[in-house]
Structures are given as C-alpha cells and as structure tokens.
C-alpha cells in the first residue's frame, strides 16, 4: 500500500546501494574465495600463476598440523571461555538486578572492556603478563611466589589467553543476560514467593527455566565471537609457543598472508565458514526441538 503511493523510484532506489554492497563486496569476494580454493596460486616474475588443482587444497587440510592445533585450541577456548563468561555474566546480572538503581555505576563501568580495541586489550595484558615487570608476577613476588612465564610456557599460554578472553567478553554476556533478567515477569517471581519458594527454589524452578532461552542465545552469540578470536592472540602470543595458542583465524592468516598461499588459505576459510554454519544450524535445531517438547 505504501509503495503504491510512493511509486517505484523510492522503493528500488532505497534498496539499491545495499544490494550493490551485498553483491560486490560480500557475495563476489566469497565466491572468489571459493573459486581460489580450487587453485594453486604462485608468483613468478611479478605475474600471478593460477593452476586449477581441484580438491587438492581441501585434501591437504587433513595433514596440516597447524590447522589441527588451531581447531583443537579454538574449540577449547570457545567452550571454556564461553561457559565461564555465561556463568559469570549471569551471576553479575542477577546481582546487579537485585541491587536495582544502586547498581547503575557498576553497569556503566562493566561495559568498558567491550568498547576497547581487541589489540589494546592484547597490549594491556601482554604488559601485565610480562615475566620481568608484569603486575601479575609482581603480585606473586609480594606473596613470595616465584615469577611465572605466563605466555612463554606451552602449558600455561592457552590458559592465559583464555583468561584474557573471559575478562574481555564477560561484560558482553553480562549485558545480554541483564536484559533477560530484568525482563523476567515480576509478578511471576512474586507468585513464587507467595507460593512458598525460598530464594534458591525461586531461582532454580522459576527464573532459570524462564532465562534458559536467553542463556542459550548468549552462549551462541559469545561462541561465534570467540570462534573468530584473532586480535588478542596476534598480540599476546602469535600462536606460540610452538602451536600452544594457535587458533583457526591465526592459521588462516599465516597460510594466506604470511606464507602467501592464497589457494590453500582460501580452502581453510571456506571449510571454516561452512563448518560454523553447520554447527550453528544443528545447535538451533536442537534448541528448537527442546523448546517444542517442553
């Protein structure tokens, strides 16, 4: 109805720029990426040599130790960091919500890490983790504990990176879950009180089930972002020592840019994009089924 009154110019004209960006800068490059993933690309004498190699790049994925480490480390990071963030975020959200207006300042301050560039987060923590003068080792020194090489030790490096990720992104979980906690129907929790529920029973039997969809969505949101982690790793460890903190994004970066192997790098990218889409689709399916049967 509206469009009839406006004519076709506004209708098509207003969508046109978005379509251009969509086709030229989203579809085309990804299509190009898929195309490149079937190629072996090399430079000789300043000229690009392209050779169609079929699925060879994809076959090579299985034997890539860097990629293997990247996948394992990324999965560990996603599961551990995201779980901690959701738990901590939920606890903070409930605390803030029950403090009501007196928690306004806390809410503001908690947001800060989300807004700071990931690279700077990396820089800050690189200084804090520093073996010689980092504040963490200084603190340990005061307690009489010998200095620890947080980022240099193969056993600790991944854990150290995960701690940074938790610190960086717990505020985001907090924010999403706070909206959910504050959106809980007040009268229902009052009904539970009158019906004789203790605070714990009210949480366990009423609030938690009602929060579950929000918790699930927060987990998915956070997992997607955690999966793409790059900035902090780039600055903190560059994937090292060895492959202790190698993550998928960093593997792509190394293969594509540092080793200048666009064909193989594209194959990793394409494989990653499709795997992630598949995992998310399955997760959403499971959640929908769970909702339906409840």
């Amino acid at each position: 109805m509206t469009s009839v009154q406006l004519g076709w110019m506004p209708k098509y004209g207003s969508l046109f720029p978005a379509v251009v960006f969509f086709l030229a800068l989203a579809v085309l490059p990804v299509a190009n990426l898929i195309f490149l993933s079937f190629m072996d690309i090399s430079w000789s004498g300043g000229v690009v040599q392209r050779e169609f190699v079929g699925l060879e790049n994809y076959a090579a994925l299985g034997d890539d130790p860097l990629l293997k480490a990247g996948i394992v480390n990324t999965l560990i990071l996603v599961v551990v960091a995201t779980s901690c963030q959701v738990l901590l975020g939920l606890a903070l959200a409930i605390a803030c919500s029950s403090l009501g207006h007196s928690s306004r300042l806390y809410r503001t301050l908690f947001i800060l890490p989300i807004l700071i560039p990931g690279i700077i987060i990396g820089a800050i923590w690189r200084l804090m983790y520093n073996f010689q003068f980092g504040i963490i080792n200084q603190g340990l020194d005061l307690l009489g504990i010998p200095a620890v090489d947080w980022l240099g030790s193969p056993h600790l490096a991944l854990a150290s990176v995960i701690v940074v990720d938790i610190w960086h992104w717990t505020p985001f979980s907090f924010l999403l879950l706070l909206a959910a906690v504050e959106g809980l129907p007040k009268d229902v929790s009052e009904a539970a009180k009158v019906d004789g529920a203790t605070a714990w029973q009210e949480f366990r039997r009423v609030s938690l089930p009602l929060l579950w969809p929000a918790i699930f969505m927060t987990f998915i949101f956070r997992a997607v972002i955690a999966f793409k982690v790059f900035d902090e790793v780039f600055l903190l460890t560059s994937g090292g020592p060895g492959t202790a903190t190698e993550v998928i994004s960093f593997t792509i970066y190394q293969r594509f840019f540092l080793q200048d192997n666009p064909g193989y790098g594209s194959a990793i990218s394409v494989a990653v994009i499709f795997s992630v889409a598949l995992i998310i689709a399955i997760a959403l399916q499971l959640q929908n089924r769970r909702e339906a049967t409840r």
Binding site: L36, K228, I252, V270
Partner: peptide, 21 residues
C-alpha cells in the same frame, strides 16, 4: 539471513577475500 551468516565468517577470511578483490 545474510546479516546472520555474515557474523559467522572470521574477519580474517573476509580480509583475504577483499585483499584479492
């Protein structure tokens, strides 16, 4: 759907795609 799927793609992958383009 584009808006949602686009979030799943690691920026590094996009960076490589754009670099080529």
């Amino acid at each position: 759907v584009w808006a949602m799927l686009f979030n799943l793609v690691p920026p590094v992958s996009l960076a490589s795609a754009w670099y080529e383009l």
